[in-house]
Design a protein around this nucleic acid. Structure first.
Lengths: 260, 260
DNA sequence: CGGGACTTTGAGCAAATTCAACCATTGTGG
DNA sequence: CCACAATGGTTGAATTTGCTCAAAGTCCCG
């Protein structure tokens, strides 16, 4: 089951502003002054509770990072020196057992926050699934900033509370659902999150490998593959080229997901 | 698998101060004024970051509750009007699937916080395992108080972060560990928490039923029972009367727990 | 066009579940 | 006070779901 991908620590960072490639040219100068104010995933992020001057303070401590596929973002046990916000791409979080068995505890997409840990070491590893862009915050400086920005702290608490709820959903999935129900739940969950990000939920993108899906759902790749073909045969999904899935019969998938 | 126990909403509450039965008589008057300051699980709780005047403000909005075994503390989907702190006994949190399959997402003991949800409805149900005592906080009033007590808010964030780490441990348990490893992890986890509370970790108390353990570990009661007898036969544990277990060979249990 | 990685499919197997019976403990009513 | 029902726990046998091992197929990228 190969523990992880090729893993070296983060590099390739550079100061804001990031490339403006998916930003209108007119915004470029604004972005130079207040990079965060031109961020196209701000509305999805924890930063959305901050006003312009507060954003500016945040922008002062942030740097952007672009990582290629399979690059390790952070590693379990390493000093938790930085926190991140995903601005593009997909990141997987995982833990390993001594013998290499792996459990992926979550997939992060644009707008998702990464690294919350009031411990001084990361409790899990994180790796880029495809190419990923991230905002990076030095932990110490962000913590100091939090004292001045109670709104942000409240938002982080809300965020943590949501993640906790999601973790409990994942527990009932792992502990009590069948393979078919797990796959269905996974698809519905990804679709809902894609929608929230304003991305396509019906031809749904699955950027991660079958092995990743298996390690997320507590299955093997073979079972994941078999279950996909089973759902395909039953005409509830259609597997499209390029890692896309069509949710042909979304109602049926939703029923399966909730244990119908 | 019978959904839950006999479940009616909380009652039987009364205002502080609680009975002083495990408090020295001399403290009784102090308790009348600042009930929280005499709390014997304060050092374990989120309240441990507050000084005397802050504690007093907290005490003003708290009431204590004693619930018999199997009483529902709060119910998934109900308005999240109160938050709780467990002061004695054991509470189980769980979620149900439509057909009654149950996943217990956690057991709470003295000092543990319950009900954190920035949603307006509880995301799970909670039920007393044995007789339980709780501190109860009206959510609105506690939220208002949080604006004045940033220390407490930070503590809650730290708490949530710890719970998140525990949730990830539970995910790798549910997704990737064998029945034997699950039981071993469960015992080690309970022992560590008992120790932190200053309770006996070696003759370890298991207040919950086999069914509860099964629903927590993603197993059936039969498998839990078989695994216990297997560990008993291998002389790594000893089952004692009164729901106690001796961790005869703790090292072996720890090795099993980490997937050795 | 070829090679490597990923995915799918197949056959046999094993861990855990299901179904069923039995045992132990406890509480209750005759 | 004891018989007995009820609950929870243990054990056994058969079954099943998902896993392991193995091979073939597909896709992508140079």
């Amino acid at each position: 089951m190969s523990a992880s991908g090729s893993g070296r620590p983060v590099d390739g960072e550079r100061r804001m502003p990031a490339d403006g490639e998916r930003r209108k040219p007119a915004d470029a100068t604004i972005a130079d002054i207040h990079p965060c104010s031109a961020c196209d995933v701000r509305q999805l992020s924890v930063c959305n509770v901050l006003d312009a001057p507060e954003l500016k303070r945040l922008a002062e401590i942030v740097s952007t990072v672009t990582l290629p596929a399979h690059r390790t973002v952070l590693h379990e046990g390493d000093p938790a020196d930085h926190l991140y916000n995903v601005t593009g791409g997909c990141v997987k979080l995982y833990k390993l057992l001594a013998d290499g068995r792996r459990q992926i505890t979550g997939f992060l997409f644009a707008g998702d926050f990464l690294g919350l840990a009031l411990e001084d070491r990361y409790a899990y590893s994180a790796e880029a699934v495809g190419e990923v862009t991230l905002c990076r915050f030095p932990r110490r400086r962000l913590e100091r900033l939090l004292d001045d920005l109670p709104k942000l702290e409240k938002r982080l608490l809300g965020n943590a509370s949501n993640e906790l709820a999601a973790a409990q959903d994942q527990m009932i999935l792992l502990g009590r659902k069948t393979a078919r129900e797990k796959i269905a739940s996974f698809l519905i969950n990804l679709a809902a999150r894609a929608e929230r990000r304003g991305q396509s939920a019906d031809p749904l993108a699955l950027p991660m490998s079958r092995t990743d899906i298996a390690d997320y759902l507590g299955l093997t790749t073979e079972t994941v593959s078999r279950t996909f073909t089973q759902l395909k045969t039953r005409r509830v999904i259609t597997l499209l080229p390029g890692g896309m899935v069509a949710l042909t019969d979304r109602l049926a998938i939703e029923e399966l997901a909730s244990g119908g």
